[in-house]
Design a protein around this nucleic acid. Sequence first.
RNA 1: GGGCACGUAGAUCAGCGGAAGAUCGCUGCUUUCGCAAAGCAGAGGUCGGGGGUUCAAAUCCCCCCGUGUCCA
Length: 856
Amino acid sequence: MDPSEYDLAFFHREGFHRRDCAGCGRAFWTLGDHDRCQEAPCREYGFIGHPIFGRSYGLREMREAYLRFFETRGHTRLRRYPTVARWRNDVFFTQASIYDFQPWVTSGAIPPPANPLTISQPSLRFIDLEEVGRSGRHFTLFEMMAHHAFNRPDHEVYFKDRCTELCHELLVGELQLDPRAITYKEEEWEGGGNLGPSLSVGASGVELATLVFMEYIRDGDRLKAMPLTVVDTGYGLERFTWASQGTKTAYEAVFGSAYDELRRTFPPREAAILLDHARALNFMLTDGVVPSNSKEGYFARLLVRRALRLLAKAPEAPELVALLDRSARELAHDFPELGMHREDLHRVVVAEIERFGEAVERARQTIHRYDERMRSTGGKVTPDDLLQWYDSLGVPPDLAVEELSDPPAIPDDFYRQVAARHECEAPTSDYVEATEGLPDIPGSVPPTEVLYYLDPYTVAFDAHVVWAGGPFVVLDRTYFYPTGGGQVTDRGHLGDLEVVEVDRRGPWVLHRLERPAPFHVGDRVHGRIDPARRTQLMQHHTATHLLNGALREVLGPHVWQTGAYKGPEAARIDVTHYRPLSKEELHKVERRVNEIVREDRRVKSYFEARGEAERRFGFTLYQGGAVPGRELRIVEIEGFDVEACGGTHCTHTSEVGAIGILEVDRIQDGVVRLTFVSGERALDVREEHEEILREAARRLGVPVPKLPDGIDRLLGEVEETRRVARERRKEDLGAIAARLEATEGAGEKAGDVTLFVGEFELDRNGLMELSRLLTRSANRVAILAGETEGRGTLFIGSTASGVPARSVAEAARPAFDGKGGGNPSAATVVGEPGAPLAAALEAARKAARGLALATG
RNA sequence: GGGCACGUAGAUCAGCGGAAGAUCGCUGCUUUCGCAAAGCAGAGGUCGGGGGUUCAAAUCCCCCCGUGUCCA
């Protein structure tokens, strides 16, 4: 990065000078006389015991001081965003404040909710999980305080100079940090294809803040200027609080008395881990993470299990639920939503604790059995076994060792080996731009006025063509709903041409026609939307909201929508839940939604300022994913459910008609999928189902209510028939065996051995069963011929130790070009089609006889 | 989203290329006034589903489905 990027007027105005750090070699700006930048490792921690700010702040005071500082300097204060980044599909969690605005605001697609703005964003990072408690400064959940500005060519808010000035003013003016203690270190920042200069703000050994200026797009080796430049800052709330108190570790400063209390039972590291995990879990669970074995749920499970293992070490330790509760009560002062659904949260956690117990018990049994087997066979349990158990059973090696009578040593690099096992996995991204395959529209084309938001009932309209290319047409206004928000596209006609797909691209709605459009810019066209399809989609969409509301009511507020699809045939909704739905819960949900339908509640759709909507309804608005626009479209089912949603909806619940849930699946640990129908489709499906029932009943010859009995009867009969057939076969074979044994001379004597030789109309299995009957006593050999799928088959069974069946088979094999083998007691040979079976039988007889006489 | 492990009798599991097993539970009989217990006998399996390899597959290979677990 060019040094001139950092040559800020602010630095010169204030008398900063630029130096190269004697430690890391990087350039930095300072008012002091340091020869090194003031960050670890170039500078040791100097603030422990010597707080660097004017006074000591608590977490809350520090947050408030920060936000107010920027508020009084023209920034709008924003409430926190959820810690689960549902609006993105490239990450699970909000890891920094800028995540709140990616990708739509930072790409310029949507205006920022405020500009400039300030926020303290709870963020989750699991990269340094092992460092939590150990380093004295790491957390899985931390608050990133920030001020952001988004600059367009036509609207410059502020950039490097003013940003740095604000930061300096905060540190020196507001917090009374010695201005000479600060260093602004030059660092290049790059991420997501963008880059720009950044300043790392250090003092007394601690990195207090990072000021990032997103300015360029990497285009091969060249840099292109971004149309929208972004001020992205990050100030660690915990770090600021710590530095203001100068305690030994950040945990004392952040957790306060809760830390002191836990320290009576646990060593410092464990106390810090427990409090950190409790805090992170409260945010995660409140924001709708349900512990599970995949995706974001796994991280909740990880924290729960780590905490449980620590708690299990001390008999006088609090219960996990109590620990979480205590943490939630404190957090609720600043984040009221964290205290709101404690009982539901308890149920989620208790269910998770139970599952952990089951997993441990299962693992214990498996390991115990394995240990017994090793003990009896003289085998040894290896370190590889420990690895395997950790990976597949979830037993940490120290726990596994406790179960073993002769445990192996746990390798020092155990977790490295675990990591190595997972090394070859390439991270895959299914991030597909919704605009893929769509044409580029010139920026000069006026945006489409979307009318379906205002009136979902109008299905015929006139509009003007503003752009046309291939089969795509953009109109100045449209009632066609484009695929989005889980609702599939409208269909219909523009003029005489069929509209097969409608998509949204930026500010335009693209109508895709059945063939290249004969339209020209300026043409007036008549649009007609397929009304039946639209109605059905509206019914399914409103029904989805109704179900979501009912699920939250019946199962609890931990239920969040994780996905949805509304098609013309059926719709489905995926929600988080920690166990399969019971039949009763399902019935309750179905009854409840149909009740709301009958009550004919109003469904209001309107736009509202984001902050106002959040204040009124909370984050549960973002069921379909949070869109960080300035204005939200709110769909409110009066007194029942409120969501931010861009879909077309009925205006009264009665229009939805009946709702029928067709299927319930657990599509993933922690996620339940309901497939359902409403409106006309519900009636159709019900008719179909009734017809199926009637037909099934007719075929069984029972009335519909007796169907289950009828099926039981039928199954009983099938089983009986099978039993009888099996019995019959057994009898038949028994009769053959008995006849052979009784017939004089049928059993050929060879020394002590009795040989039974014969050809039967039996296949391999039949021969095998017959052989079994003939060789129930010792010193018998059965050499039986039959046919399997057109091939001559020989089966040899033996209870004579001197006459191994396998040897007999081998002797017979060449006689009819056969293949086969077996063991001493049983063997099979199958010949080529048409090969002389009789010769093979004779060869086998001779061989068996020879062997018998040789030993006799 | 990926890796690994697992899916066999009502339950818990063994078997891991050659003729489906153990323990508990169940049924009957013996014993007992009865119960428990013991002894004896018996019933109960498309070895998750579908393909393939093989003379032969619960067992090996592939694809699904389900469960668990680790990791992102």
